[in-house]
Simulated assay, not measured.
Amino acid sequence: MLHLRYFVAVAEELNFSAAARRLHMATSPLSQRIRDLERELGQRLFERDTHSVALTPAGSALLPMARDVLDQFSSIPWRLREATRVQRSTVLIGIPPGLHPALRSRVSALTERVRERFELQRWPGTTPALVAGVREGRLALALARMPFSDPALEQVRVMSERMGAAVPADRFAGRESVALADLGDLAYVAPPKDVRPAYFDVLDSALADLGIRNRLDLTHTGYAGISEVVSGGTAFSISILEPESPMQEYRLENVKVLPFTDFHPQLDTALVWRHDRACGDLKNLVAAAREVFDEPVLR
């Protein structure tokens, strides 16, 4: 199993140093483990030189097999729990930060609908942690910020929230909207990497393409820290426009969120589950969740 994990990491990164960092190990022993696997299988899995790494035909054929084996292996704990559980079991649904009340209401509706069969409890976390929890079977379901991708998971969009520019209120007094050109003398500040959804990386790239290149990187803080910087008058950020969004709780007195006239960001949230759980013992829970979250919420 360890050798297959090493192989998948290198195959996905196509870079031994990056794969070693991902696996929290040194590059030299990782290279040796790959050579051991190639020797055991009697196949060369990678073409490598000093500048590049590429999969051989054998490596390309092995990659989906290895992913399938690892998925099966990681699902053993929850499959075993389900095989030995009592009639009414406790299951977890992942909840991201700042979840809109409309989705919280649907989570409550789902909890009530399945209460005779499941005790549905909420588990908070960032999107990477929630997606990993679903993949590994610790969470039955999760609401997670898009985009994310995992071949073991299924997802359906359940909400789209329009986003605007969080700007210093005193500098934009009387304004009902803002254009990107109005923000040229402000630094763009995004949430720190350990708390922000992947969509903010998409936003960052889009803003750079549109000429917003001045960046301010924050560490060891969260959304409240961003609001502090914006309220000081030197930066802007991207935030949810919807007044009912819990994200508005982080706004300070000198911060306002205005819609863009020439840029249309939106944050999408998906319901996610393992595809093999939709046909296993949790199929009734997944089916009920799909019904409750059937119509996407648009804000």
Rank of each mutant, 00 (worst) to 15 (best):
D217A: 15
F263P: 02
L252H: 14
E119V: 15
R85Y: 09
A102N: 06
E253V: 10
L285G: 00
A187M: 11
S75V: 09
E291K: 10
T126E: 11
N15F: 10
R157L: 13
S231D: 08
G59K: 03
F236D: 00
E38F: 07
K193C: 13
L2Y: 15
T50R: 15
I226C: 07
V134Y: 01
L130Q: 06
P191K: 06
S245E: 00
V178S: 03
L210I: 09
T84R: 14
T234Y: 13
R117H: 11
E112C: 11
G225D: 02
D194T: 11
V107E: 02
S89N: 10
H264E: 14
G174M: 05
E295M: 15
S75G: 05
R35Y: 11
Y188G: 01
P191N: 06
E244I: 10
N254Y: 08
G225N: 05
Q87M: 12
V255G: 04
S31R: 15
E244Y: 12
S31V: 14
T50E: 15
S160D: 12
D170F: 14
A235W: 02
F236A: 03
S31F: 13
C279A: 12
R138L: 15
D209F: 13
F73W: 14
T269N: 02
I34D: 00
L139P: 03
G184A: 15
S227L: 11
A208D: 14
H51K: 14
V189M: 00
R113Y: 09
I212Q: 09
S237Q: 04
V53C: 06
Y6I: 08
L141R: 00
T126A: 13
F73R: 09
L80V: 12
L298E: 15
A66P: 05
P128N: 06
V272L: 02
I238C: 01
R79E: 06
Y223N: 02
A169I: 01
D71W: 15
R171G: 08
E161A: 08
E244N: 11
R162S: 06
P147C: 07
F73I: 13
G225W: 00
R39C: 10
M65Y: 14
V195R: 00
G94W: 03
R138A: 10
E161S: 10
R5E: 10
A278Q: 04
L282W: 05
L252T: 15
V272F: 02
A19R: 04
R115A: 14
R215K: 09
L23F: 04
A208V: 07
T111L: 04
V286L: 05
R135A: 11
K193W: 12
E82Y: 09
G94S: 02
D150H: 04
S160T: 13
G98W: 05
A288L: 07
I240G: 11
F46E: 02
S177N: 09
P197Q: 01
G222K: 11
R145K: 14
V230I: 04
T111K: 13
L183M: 03
P246Y: 01
R33P: 07
G98P: 09
P147F: 01
S149F: 13
D268I: 04
L37M: 08
M25K: 02
I226F: 03
G232D: 08
L285I: 06
